[in-house]
């Protein structure tokens, strides 16, 4: 369809009022505009978040609050969110990261949306504004079933992981700027704070990307890791459990479903025990 109007409202409330009349919410445009340019957009109106005042990034008292319209670049540049930098650098190019937003990342189709995988591992909370006011929802719910009609995610909140508990690894066909074959993000606490491989897992939250229509929690792997050490053998076993029970992979230009299932255990292990790079 041909676009008839691009609204650029200047507050979250104005975004909600605007979207009640229909149209697509657009963060940085990296997902919506390709559809507009190819004539594949199924709407005639766009509502941009660029001026809605939703681009704040804060990290204090152990909690991060990131506006839906904050760019991936802005998140990566925040000193309190340095743990996310390696993950952000695997998403798109630096140019795209100047445009793509945190809110938008929640709504992109897999195998994109690696920040959403991180937010799922962090058990983040989405702040949602709608015609009936504000509400909070777990990011897992938003990734699973989206938001209601007329609602818009305005921010994401997450507890910052303790030092030594954050793990991330993304397998892709190129070293930079490529979609996920498998993405693994995890907050895992061990009894000795991850200092040695002797500590046993006290708690594990593991999220996977690239291996299902949406980011998923690797619940089988999480269960299997609890009380056991993060050794290559245990991690491979956990990865195999996840490959059997937690995923629903697909074929695309990057990899086949068979391949994704086959290599998941390897990449889950590498998230915790990075290969030695010479």
């Amino acid at each position: 369809m041909v676009i008839q109007a691009v609204h650029v409202p200047e507050s979250a409330e104005a975004v909600v009022t605007c979207s009640a009349r229909g149209g697509w919410i657009m963060g940085g445009g990296t997902v919506v505009m390709p559809l507009v340019n190819s004539g594949a957009a199924s709407v005639t109106e766009l509502i941009s978040l660029r001026r809605a005042g939703l681009d704040g990034v804060e990290a204090r008292d152990g909690v991060a609050r990131i506006g839906a319209a904050a760019t991936l670049a802005a998140v990566g540049e925040h000193p309190g969110l340095a743990f996310l930098r390696p993950a952000l650098r695997t998403i798109g190019s630096p140019t795209i990261r100047n445009q793509a937003t945190v809110g938008g990342n929640l709504f992109v189709a897999q195998p994109y949306g690696d920040l959403a995988v991180c937010l799922l591992a962090l058990d983040a909370t989405c702040e949602i504004a709608g015609p009936d006011g504000r509400r909070d929802a777990p990011v897992a719910d938003v990734l699973g079933s989206g938001v209601g009609s007329g609602e818009v995610v305005v921010a994401v909140r997450a507890t910052l992981p303790e030092p030594g508990t954050w793990y991330y690894h993304k397998a892709m066909r190129r070293r930079l700027n490529s979609a996920a074959i498998v993405t693994v993000a995890s907050v895992t606490r061990t009894s000795d704070g991850g200092v040695t491989s002797d500590g046993v897992v006290a708690s594990a939250a593991i999220a996977l990307g690239g291996v299902a229509p949406r980011p998923v929690r690797a619940v089988s792997a999480e269960r299997l890791l609890r009380g056991r050490p993060l050794t290559p053998e245990v991690l491979t076993e956990a990865g195999e459990a996840a490959a059997r029970g937690d995923i629903d992979p697909f074929d695309d230009a990057y990899a086949s479903a068979w391949y994704r299932r086959r290599v998941l255990p390897v990449h889950l292990r590498r998230a915790f025990i990075p290969p030695v790079v010479r």
């Binding site: 657009m26 445009g29 505009m33 340019n37 941009s48 660029r50 445009q99």
Partner: peptide, 8 residues
Amino acid sequence: CLVAVETV
């Protein structure tokens, strides 16, 4: 190409 000009 991905920037709607009204937004900037």
